[in-house]
């Protein structure tokens, strides 16, 4: 029998060798056990059946929906679906986050043979690859989506998406000219942030407009002033990043329309869009000051600008015009695949 003299330096220690062999054996056993005998726990996310999107819903601040799109038409996709099921949706933190804060909806696609409902959901929520998860507001407005991620990344996605859903609800409410919900949403979004965090000028601007529509002039001025005060310490690496600060100054009456127009043209990067935002702010201000006819004229220019039709300012302009009795079909916008602030 082979014996190794104790104390030799050029040999693998028998203890190490034994530990290694034992661990490798245990590895084999655990893998075979997991493959043949282990039963995966029951799916603990309470998935719901998909329903057609109800675009008329106005309770935008109630629980958003988490759509999980999976495709069983080919082997690779079904493997990936199982990966999601076994890893992500078995994670206790993810499960509790899903069950507590969203309405989980599982949409099973089947390639080209998918049913009409699944197909329409896929199109409305801009799903390009499966499996993927997508967060949407109760009225079906898209918030954010993700493809394969690790557990922690998925938690981060959910966290971010939930935060964004509030802001998106604010914008959606603006499109519905539901000033009350818009105010609530922007307020919530504002309160989600720590008190010394920079604030987003767009949200604040639209919040103040919504507040003025709700006849809360004082609060409207306050939020704008507060935003300017908070953002004084902001360092902008790019001059264009300062936009839309001039709009806030305009809404506060600190600069004239001509001045705003001039300032909007100073920012080269997104010139069209800045000019349009400025014009919308000008028009909304006119409307709130009671100069309806002049406001309508300006709003129509914004609404009918083909270059910037997908931007929120355009959408808001059309919403305001609809509120004033003009016809701009909303469904057309809903099929748009892009939306910008």
């Amino acid at each position: 029998m082979l014996t190794i003299e104790r104390g030799r330096t050029n040999v693998v220690p028998p203890v190490l060798l034994t530990v290694c062999v034992v661990l490798l054996f245990m590895r084999g056993v655990s893998i075979f056990y997991a493959t043949f005998y282990h039963k995966a726990p029951e799916r603990i996310v309470a998935w719901q059946q998909p329903k057609a999107l109800d675009k008329s819903r106005r309770d935008l601040l109630s629980r958003p929906s988490l759509y999980f799109f999976c495709d069983n038409s080919n082997q690779f996709n079904s493997i990936m679906t199982q990966l999601y099921d076994n890893m992500l949706f078995q994670n206790r933190e993810i499960v509790s986050m899903i069950n507590e804060s969203v309405v989980p909806i599982r949409v099973v696609l089947n390639g080209e043979k998918s049913d009409a409902l699944a197909k329409s959901l896929k199109n409305s929520l801009r799903v390009t690859n499966t499996p993927s998860a997508c967060l949407a507001l109760p009225n079906g407005a898209y918030v954010e989506s993700t493809a394969w991620q690790s557990d922690r990344m998925f938690v981060a996605f959910l966290h971010d998406a939930m935060e964004h859903s509030v802001r998106t609800a604010g914008f959606e409410a603006m499109r519905n000219t539901d000033w009350d919900t818009a105010c609530k949403a922007f307020q919530l979004d504002f309160e989600n942030k720590p008190s010394d965090e920079l604030v987003d000028y767009y949200g604040t601007m639209y919040w103040s407009i919504a507040l003025r529509h709700n006849h809360n002039e004082a609060r409207a001025r306050e939020v704008l002033q507060d935003a300017l005060k908070r953002n004084t310490k902001a360092i902008y690496f790019d001059k264009d990043d300062r936009w839309p600060e001039p709009c806030v100054h305009f809404l506060l009456g600190e600069i004239s329309w001509d001045e705003l127009k001039k300032r909007a043209s100073e920012y080269k990067k997104k010139h069209k869009y800045q000019a349009e935002t400025a014009q919308y702010v000008y028009a909304a201000n006119l409307l709130l000051e009671g100069k309806t006819e002049q406001a309508k004229k300006e709003l129509r220019e914004v609404a009918e600008n083909k270059d910037t039709r997908y931007y929120y300012s355009g959408k808001f302009a059309r919403a305001e015009l609809r509120g004033l009795g003009e016809t701009y079909p909303k469904e057309e916008e809903d099929n748009d695949t892009e939306s910008y602030d």
């Binding site: 190490l16 661990l23 893998i31 997991a34 078995q90 206790r92």
Partner: peptide
Amino acid sequence: YHVINASDFPVASAVIYLSNIALYLT
């Protein structure tokens, strides 16, 4: 994070990790 938050403690992950260290060192 995955191991601790899994609904079932994944024994295989832990054993694979430990046995790999032993294997590499051996």
